[in-house]
Simulated scan of single mutants.
Amino acid sequence: MRRETGTPRPDWERTIAGQGLVFGTPARYASGKARPYWDESVHYVLPMDEVLSLEADVELLHSMCLEAVDHVVLTERYAEFGLPEWVGPHIAESWRRRDPHVYGRFDLRYDGRGPAKLLEYNADTPTSLLEAAVVQWHWKTTVHPDDDQWNSLHEQLVERWSAVAGQLPANELHFTWSGADPTGEDHLTTSYLQETAAEAGLDTVGLAIEEIGWDPLLTRFVDLEQAPMNTVVKLYPWEWVIDEEFGRHAVESLPQTLWLEPLWKMLLSNKALLGILWENYPGHPNLLPAFNDQPGLLTEYVRKPKLGREGSNVDIVAPGYETATGGVYGSEGYVYQAFDPLPEFDGYRPALGAWIVGDSAAGLGIRETAGLVTDDGAAFVPHRIPES
């Protein structure tokens, strides 16, 4: 694995906007100056043998995570995840029904010299999907047409919708996003997911999650036309849903209205998963030592809030690396993960976002930052696999 520089395509801004990448929160250079969020002046090169190894690691990690869900449900360890007591039985029912799941993204530490290490699993509301599936693919075909890319995301998403269609209450899906998202990233991601479902032959409707209604007479969710909503694809975290006024309705009306990602993924998108995994698979080469609610034997660690997002409220405790980020998370508790800094390439640190669709590895997106924490100042950069 290596980092290379190159000349951006002429008029690249118009090109990526035409491919749908229209939200514009700038990233940051090491100097603190604004950096384009999509930055094709650099890219990463991964040889095929490393990609094949990463694919195997991702699918193994995913299977380990599913086993962790089964373990938590069997032992009823929901309090360790900072979840209210009333939600636990509904998570168990969702898991035992095998409510269908579609996709997720593993964030990995990887330097090409050893096995990938799991940092966290974005299993409920993963973003940077369009960049990984579409925008970097077009960059690759234009700039490096003879090379390959770890990227079957679009095809696998279409196939996944076809595969789960028979498990859904109806052929119509409502795709929702929050109108409170100032960047528009959630709307963009949901619209792309809606496109892949439509390509699979499903009927799709888009609306903001704030526009979903609850009919107390029918005791079910309805859309703006007062039509019953059978399946809702959301990009709104389950932990936020259950704190909303309609949250109990969303949970207790399952599976009359089915939500994707499913309720059981609350356990996978929660960083308490890291402590469970280390407990179940101590010493595993794809894991970093991690403990819930206390650092255990760790003397150098990263303290992460169990429900934290975008690098908020992260503390790094290690000589010479002490870091603390602000935010609003932490009341739910913390996980303590061994500190293993992201590798440095030309002064920047890449975090690999490895995608899973269904139960299969599907692609890679890379975000890099000058700091130790991958936060909302990270830039998305493409990758390629050189022709062998």
Rank of each mutant, 00 (worst) to 15 (best):
S178D: 00
S178I: 01
S178K: 00
S178R: 00
G179C: 02
G179A: 10
G179N: 02
A180W: 04
D181W: 09
D181A: 09
D181H: 11
D181L: 05
D181Q: 12
P182C: 08
P182R: 01
P182W: 07
P182A: 09
P182M: 04
T183F: 10
T183P: 04
T183L: 05
G184M: 03
G184H: 04
G184Q: 05
G184R: 03
E185N: 11
E185F: 07
E185V: 12
E185T: 09
E185K: 07
E185Q: 13
D186G: 15
D186M: 08
D186S: 13
D186T: 10
D186Q: 14
D186K: 07
L188M: 15
L188D: 10
L188H: 11
L188V: 14
L188P: 08
T189D: 08
T189R: 08
T189Q: 13
T189C: 14
T190N: 10
T190C: 11
T190V: 15
S191D: 04
S191L: 05
S191I: 05
S191V: 09
S191E: 12
S191H: 11
S191N: 08
Y192D: 13
Y192A: 10
Y192C: 07
Y192G: 07
Y192P: 04
L193I: 06
L193Y: 11
L193D: 02
L193T: 12
L193M: 15
L193C: 13
Q194K: 12
Q194M: 14
Q194N: 11
Q194P: 03
E195N: 12
E195S: 14
E195L: 12
E195P: 02
E195V: 04
E195T: 15
T196E: 10
T196G: 09
T196M: 12
T196F: 04
T196P: 07
A197V: 08
A197I: 12
A197L: 10
A197C: 13
A197P: 13
A198Y: 06
A198P: 04
A198Q: 15
A198W: 08
A198L: 12
A198E: 15
A198I: 09
E199M: 15
E199R: 13
E199I: 02
E199Q: 15
A200R: 06
G201T: 03
G201D: 04
G201E: 10
G201H: 05
G201C: 05
G201K: 08
G201M: 09
L202W: 09
L202S: 10
L202I: 09
D203H: 11
D203M: 12
D203C: 01
D203I: 13
T204I: 10
T204Y: 02
T204K: 02
V205Q: 11
V205W: 02
V205E: 03
G206Y: 03
G206K: 08
G206E: 07
G206P: 00
G206C: 11
L207I: 00
L207Y: 03
I209P: 01
I209N: 09
I209S: 07
E210R: 01
E210V: 00
E211T: 07
E211N: 02
E211S: 11
I212N: 00
I212R: 00
I212W: 00
G213E: 01
G213R: 03
